[in-house]
Each structure stands twice: as structure tokens, then as C-alpha cells.
Simulated assay, not measured.
Amino acid sequence: MIKTMYCFLIATNSIFATSSIMAKELDTRIYGPYLGQTPPGQTAKIFAPRILSTSKDREYTISFTPDLKELYFTRMDADTNKWWTMTYKQKNNRWYGSTLAPRVGRPTLSPDGNTLHLGNKYISRTDSGWSQIRSLGPMFDNKDWGIMRLSSSSSGTYILDDYKNGDLLRISEVKNGVRQAPKPLPAQINTGKWNAHPFIAPDDSYIIWDGERDGGYGDTDLYISFREPDGSWGKALNLGPTVNTDAGEAGGYMSPDGKYFFFNRTTSAGNGDIYWVDSNFIKVLKTQRYTKR
């Protein structure tokens, strides 16, 4: 078993390291930003149906580079039940898709687009593509932790989940140039069940995660906590009916231009797709949060 896992990691490392050479690209013949999709309004809709979001497979956890010319996500093949890390890249305004490697963690790009976080591991951009998979180090290699998604801000703050310890969310900041050990976020965030898949704004102004708690819409919902002026985290706010339904919503993500909010929705039938919606509702939530103080 150990030998099999070792061979799998070596193979995965190799694929990521040479993905720009090995991955066969599919020409979508689609042009324009956001895979040529018509932007959503205040009603969430499936992102790139029949292109990225398929009716057969399950797609999760999307992430874009700052120039919006690359995107990464995960897909579970319905025939094999295996998860893969996928990408679409824009060249001369035209989009090309490819499969990078078996999934290792939930891929989330750093704000500068040069690091792809993969749970407690990561890959870095190189002149020829991506580096081999690397560890984030002893602070994050704890075998008693179960990190699915790690999100980073421009200041280097990490937000991460841990499914092995009561669905706990942790934060790791950088102070005076030194990485701080991850510590649990406060009780208003680590409340209820299934807290997972956190996202932190590039400017550290808010965090978004999914979980199940009293007063929700049914299954897992998406929540937000805004950073207070004193640096603490505000109370958890349900993102409301713009996003949440009686299905399961998870994996929230804000586009680098701040215009659109992306998330996953899984129905009771097990179908999972990536949705997007105009992000203005989050600005409204923030305004309401402070005007009601």
C-alpha cells in the first residue's frame, strides 16, 4: 500500500511538473472572458454549462489567475468516480481545456496566480509550467489534520479547514515576516457542522466558508465574516437566498476582478455544478452589517 501511494505521488508530481507539455489540450473554439459566457445578474446560474459544468460529471472549486486567462477546478468522472484537476487557458483570446493530474487537495490559486494551493501542498509557477508538488512544511503536515482547501490572501494569510478535527477552520498569519502556527478561528465561525472549504479575500477583509447550522436553508450553506476595524472577525452571516437553497452550497470563491461570486451546488440527486452570480449582494451584506450596529 505504501509503495503504491509512493508511486502515485511520484506520478502526480511528474504530471504537474510537466503539465504544459504532457496535457493534451482541447480547443473549445470559444472566445472572450469567462469562457465566453454571458455574465450573470442577481440570480445565480450554472457557469459554462456543457463546457465546464457538465450534467454527467461533478465539478467543484474554481479559481482564476489575476488576468482571468487561466482557470482551475476539479471534476469527478461519473464513470470511474475519480477526481481530476482540470484547467482552461486562454491563448489569443481562444480557450483551450486540459486535464492536469489526479486531484490533490482542492486547487486554489494565490492572488498573484503564481502558487496553486493543494490542501497542505502546493505547486509554483515556473518558466515551463508548474513545479513538482511541494509540502507547506511541518506546520501543515500534521497527520492528524485533514486539510481539503487552503486559501491565501495577498498578505500571506492562510485560511484552512480540517475535517479530521470536528470540521475546524484555522488561520495562519504572517507577522514580521514569520509564518505563524495555524490556530482555530473564533467560535462564531467554528459553530455547527461541516465547516469547510474556506476562502479569504485578497485584502483580508472577509472570509467565506460553508457549513450547516441552525437557521440555514437546509443542507450546507455559505457564510461570510467581515474583518472588524480592530482586526477581529465579525459574526457569521448567511449569504442568503441569492446563493443558498435547500440543496448543498459550498466552495465559495470571488473572481479576481471582484465582479462575480462562484460556488458549488449539489442537489439531493448528487449532481454537482459550479454556479456564478453578480457579487453586489456581498457589498449589500457588508453595508447592512455595519448600519445595524
Rank of each mutant, 00 (worst) to 15 (best):
I2H: 12
K3S: 14
M5V: 15
M5L: 14
C7F: 13
C7H: 11
F8M: 07
F8Q: 03
L9Y: 11
I10A: 14
I10H: 11
T12D: 14
N13Q: 12
F16P: 00
A17I: 04
S20W: 04
A23S: 14
G32K: 03
Y34G: 07
Q37W: 04
T38M: 00
G41C: 11
G41W: 05
T43C: 05
I46M: 02
I46K: 14
L52H: 11
S55M: 05
S55W: 08
D57F: 08
D57H: 12
E59Y: 07
Y60M: 07
T61N: 15
T61R: 11
D67W: 09
L68Y: 01
K69E: 04
K69M: 08
K69T: 07
Y72S: 03
F73V: 00
T74E: 07
M76S: 12
M76A: 09
W83A: 13
T85I: 05
P102A: 12
P102D: 06
S110G: 10
G113L: 04
G119C: 07
N120V: 06
I123G: 00
G129S: 14
W130R: 01
S131L: 09
I133D: 02
S135L: 02
M139K: 02
D141G: 11
D141C: 11
K143S: 12
W145L: 01
G146S: 07
M148Q: 03
S155D: 03
T157P: 04
T157S: 09
Y163W: 15
K164L: 14
N165L: 04
L169D: 11
I171K: 13
I171W: 01
E173M: 06
E173T: 15
K175L: 15
R179C: 09
L185S: 01
I189A: 04
T191K: 15
K193W: 09
K193Q: 08
W194K: 14
W194P: 01
A196Y: 01
P198S: 11
F199D: 00
I200W: 03
A201G: 11
I207D: 00
I208Y: 02
I208F: 05
W209T: 07
W209Y: 15
D210C: 13
G211A: 15
G211K: 04
E212W: 12
G216V: 10
D219F: 07
L222T: 04
I224K: 08
R227A: 11
E228I: 02
W233I: 04
K235V: 01
A236M: 00
N238A: 03
N238H: 05
L239K: 00
L239F: 00
G240C: 08
N244V: 02
T245D: 01
A247N: 08
A247H: 09
A250Y: 12
G251Q: 05
S255C: 03
D257A: 07
K259L: 09
N264G: 04
R265E: 08
T267M: 02
T267H: 06
A269W: 06
G270K: 12
N271M: 02
G272T: 13
W276I: 06
V277I: 13
D278R: 10
D278G: 04
N280G: 12
K286R: 13
R289N: 13
Y290D: 09
R293Y: 04
